Amino acid sequence: MIVKEHGRTLSHDEWNDFIEALLEAHHVVITTHQNSDGDGLGSQVALAAVLTTLGKQVSLVNPTEVPSNYLFFTERFRIDVFDDRSEESIQEIALADLVVLLDANLPERMGALWKHVLAGREMGFLKVICLDHHLEPEDFADLMICETYASSTGELVYDLVRAMEKHLGKQLLDEQVAEGLYTAIMTDTGSFRFPKTSPYVYSIAGELVRAGADPNGIYDRVYNSLNPRSLKLLGSALNEIRFLDEENISWLFISQDMLKRTQSKLFDTDIIIKYLLSVPSVKIAVLMVEMLDGRTKASFRSRGEIPVNEIAGMYGGGGHRNAAGCVLAYSPEKAIQVVLKDIQAFLHRTTL
Results as ranks from 00 to 15, higher is better:
E246R: 12
L71D: 08
S264V: 04
E175M: 09
Y315F: 15
Q176G: 03
I284L: 01
N239A: 15
L292S: 13
T148P: 03
Y202G: 10
M288A: 10
D103R: 00
S250I: 01
R242C: 10
I204R: 02
S68Y: 12
L168I: 09
C146G: 00
K196S: 11
I2F: 07
R295D: 11
G169F: 10
Q57A: 15
R242F: 07
L287M: 14
H116F: 12
S331E: 12
L238M: 14
A119W: 04
R78Y: 09
L22H: 04
V157H: 01
L172V: 06
Q263D: 15
E147Q: 10
I284K: 00
R121K: 14
E65S: 14
E246Y: 14
G212T: 06
A323K: 08
M291N: 12
N227W: 11
L102C: 07
T148V: 15
T53E: 13
K170Y: 06
P199V: 04
D268R: 04
D132P: 03
I273K: 00
E65N: 10
T9Y: 08
L208Q: 01
L22A: 02
L172F: 04
M291K: 14
I19L: 05
K260M: 14
K334N: 13
F192K: 07
G294Q: 12
I204S: 00
E207G: 03
D220E: 15
I93L: 13
V3W: 08
